[in-house]
């Protein structure tokens, strides 16, 4: 196995690790702000994954460069366009979640999830 292939596997594993750690951080962490950060980790992992999909070994930036007309020379622009949308979605999710956090803080005076869950049942 050549080193390049080994590392390209490593890349995917690292992204998967990032995703999984984000996922578990989100599920396990009790602090609501930290949960949100873990969620951002997850989203970043997904975006990285998508960008890797559009990647070609030796592909160049998908911006028209005079003289290069061969389409295969460019990296696939579609995933990048999609990811722009995804980033926007992430930003709005984060913004809304933070707004919720402030409301939650005002109402419950804590950001500890298990504590709120306990009081919620009352």
């Amino acid at each position: 196995m050549s080193v390049a292939i080994f590392f390209s596997y490593v890349i995917f594993w690292l992204i998967a690790l990032l995703y999984v750690s984000g996922f578990f951080g989100m599920m396990e962490h009790n602090h609501l702000v930290k949960k949100l950060m873990a969620m951002n980790l997850m989203q970043t992992a997904v975006i990285l994954f998508f960008l890797l999909l559009g990647q070609k070994i030796g592909g160049i930036t998908p911006i028209a460069v005079p003289g290069i007309t061969d389409i295969d020379a460019y990296a696939n622009p579609l995933p990048q366009a999609l990811m722009l949308t995804a980033i926007v979605v992430n930003l709005s999710t984060t913004g809304i979640a933070l707004t919720f956090l402030i409301v939650i803080k005002k109402f419950w005076n804590t950001l500890d999830e298990s504590e709120i869950m306990r009081r919620m049942d009352k």
């Binding site: 919720f100 956090l101 109402f107 919620m120």
Partner: peptide
Amino acid sequence: GRAAFAAYRYLI
């Protein structure tokens, strides 16, 4: 307030 917490979990 309760709804905000519920919505937060929903969001996550």
